[in-house]
Structure formats: structure tokens, C-alpha cells
């Protein structure tokens, strides 16, 4: 009857145990990551080589060293904080409102049959229409200010989260409902202590999709509503033939996306480890 208590399987790809026994050991323990790094390095080296040998024109294509140089100057001059902050505000507010609205809404839609049947076709239609198409309408209604950009982010992010949450609720193990009923759990206890944790794996998947769409929404909004942000920054840099800066902006966006995705992965391992086992 012995069992390993609270010994969660450590992820093989992400745990870093320090550079204590040299790079060879590290590679042996992290083959997947090592290959990933190798892939990225290959692309960067090829890119650099094509630029150095003159195969491509650096003013059009830039190259890794120039991008890094641009990155350093952007951060040291502080020039990047404005655009980065602009995008962060749009995505931050957009995601916050999306989370606060979509999760409770998804939980309720999943539980109340009549509401689900009423809203399901609408949600499906809205989800199938490319959300960018709504941008002109949003501009027409709300102008070109930051609120329109936040609105597009919400519009982009909210539907996947509602759909995922609702699907999770509808997949709820009926035993859990019986346990809650038998224990005389009130509605609030049921939603908070049974339905929400049981649905959390679906919710986190939904958030993952939501964030990806929120970033796209923010960038597209910036293209159209030229009021700052990373999208506007990259667009402007490209118009000025400053490819180094444009690529540097894209790189920053990539880092932001990876960090956010990793954050969700961390939450998943922390709070939904029980659903994989």
C-alpha cells in the first residue's frame, strides 16, 4: 500500500537543474529542447550566411546580427516601451474582460439547457465568421481610439473561451453532480467547488486559444487604427525601409507570445495535473 505521495512527474523538457555537470549532460537530459535550439540556430545561421554572402539584400531582408543590434538600441533608447506598452494595455484589458465575462458565461451556458440551445447557433456563426471582418463596424460604432482596439481583442478572444468552457461543463462527470446533490451543496458551492475545478482543464485550453487570438486581434487593430502598439511599430518601420527594426519588433512579439503560452502551461501543470494522470 505504499505509494509515492505528492511526487508529480517533472516535465522532462522544462525543468532546469542548473549547469552543474556541463553541457553534455544537459543535452542528454533535454534532447527535445536541444533539437529545438538546434533547429532555431540552423535557421539563424542560414539567414546570416545568405546575408553575408550577398545572396539576399540586407536592406530588404536584414540579418540576425543587425536585428540584435536594433534590439539593443531599441531597449537602450527606451524607444520600444511605448509600442510594447500600448499592445500590453490592449491585450491586458482585453484578456481581463474576456476572462471575467467568458468563464462564468460559459459555465452558466453549459448548465442551463435552454440558454445553451438558444445561444449555440449564434455563437457558432459568430465564431465561424473571421472576426477581423467586424473591425470596420467596430470603428464605425466606437471610433479609432484604444477602446476599439480593446473591443476587437475581446471579440477575438472571447468566443473560443466560451465554447471551451461550455464544452467542459457539458462533459461534466454526472457522478460529481450526484455527490454534490447528496452532500446538499448549494448552487454557489456547486459552481465554485465542483463545476469550476472540474472544468478547469477545458478553461485553460480555452485561455490558450484566447491569448493567441487576442494577440492577432491586437496587431490587426493596430494596423488599421494606427494609434501605437507593436503592430503599428512594425508597420511604420517597414514603411521606412528599416527592416532591422521591423524584424526586432516581430522578435519581441514572438517572445511575448512564447512567454504567455509558457505561463498557461505552468498553470496547467499546477492546477490540472490530476486530469492527465
Amino acid at each position: 500500500m505504499s505509494l509515492a505521495t505528492s511526487d508529480r512527474a517533472p516535465s522532462t523538457t522544462e525543468s532546469d537543474d542548473g549547469p552543474s555537470r556541463g553541457i553534455v549532460n544537459w543535452i542528454r537530459n533535454h534532447t527535445k529542447t536541444a533539437y529545438g535550439v538546434l533547429g532555431v540556430a540552423t535557421v539563424l545561421i542560414l539567414w546570416q550566411l545568405t546575408a553575408v554572402t550577398g545572396l539576399v539584400n540586407v536592406t530588404i531582408a536584414s540579418d540576425p546580427t543587425r536585428v540584435i543590434a536594433a534590439e539593443i538600441s531599441l531597449f537602450s533608447s527606451g524607444q520600444i516601451w511605448g509600442p510594447l506598452g500600448g499592445t500590453a494595455i490592449e491585450v491586458g484589458w482585453g484578456m481581463l474582460i474576456t476572462l471575467v465575462v467568458s468563464i462564468p458565461l460559459g459555465l452558466i451556458l453549459g448548465r442551463v439547457r435552454a440558454l445553451y440551445d438558444m445561444t449555440e447557433p449564434i455563437i457558432n456563426i459568430l465564431n465561424s465568421v473571421p472576426y477581423v471582418l467586424f473591425l470596420p463596424v467596430i470603428i464605425f460604432w466606437f471610433g479609432i481610439g484604444v477602446q476599439s482596439r480593446i473591443l476587437l481583442v475581446i471579440w477575438a478572444a472571447t468566443l473560443p473561451l466560451i465554447i471551451n468552457t461550455t464544452a467542459g461543463v457539458r462533459n461534466l462527470n454526472s457522478d460529481y453532480i450526484r455527490v454534490a446533490r447528496m452532500c446538499c451543496a448549494g448552487r454557489w458551492t456547486f459552481y465554485r467547488s465542483v463545476l469550476f475545478p472540474a472544468t478547469l482543464p477545458y478553461i485553460l485550453t480555452g485561455i490558450r486559444l484566447s491569448i493567441a487570438r487576442a494577440l492577432v486581434g491586437a496587431i490587426v487593430a493596430e494596423f488599421f487604427l494606427s494609434g501605437g502598439g507593436l503592430g503599428y511599430f512594425v508597420q511604420t518601420a517597414t514603411s521606412n525601409f528599416d527592416m532591422n527594426e521591423a524584424m526586432a519588433g516581430i522578435l519581441i512579439m514572438a517572445v511575448v507570445a512564447v512567454v504567455l503560452t509558457r505561463l498557461i502551461g505552468r498553470l496547467e501543470r499546477r492546477y490540472t495535473h490530476w486530469s492527465q494522470g
Binding site: 462527470n173 457522478d175 460529481y176 450526484r178 455527490v179 447528496m182 446538499c184 465542483v194 475545478p197 472540474a198 478547469l200 492546477y271 490540472t272 490530476w274 486530469s275
Partner: peptide, 15 residues
Amino acid sequence: KERSLVFQSPSLFPW
């Protein structure tokens, strides 16, 4: 509240 049921399947909350 005066009744409790031991379910056929354990029906524990995995979280």
C-alpha cells in the same frame, strides 16, 4: 443532511 450515500463508483473529486 441526515442521509449519506456511499456511491458504487468512488466518485471522488480528482482535483
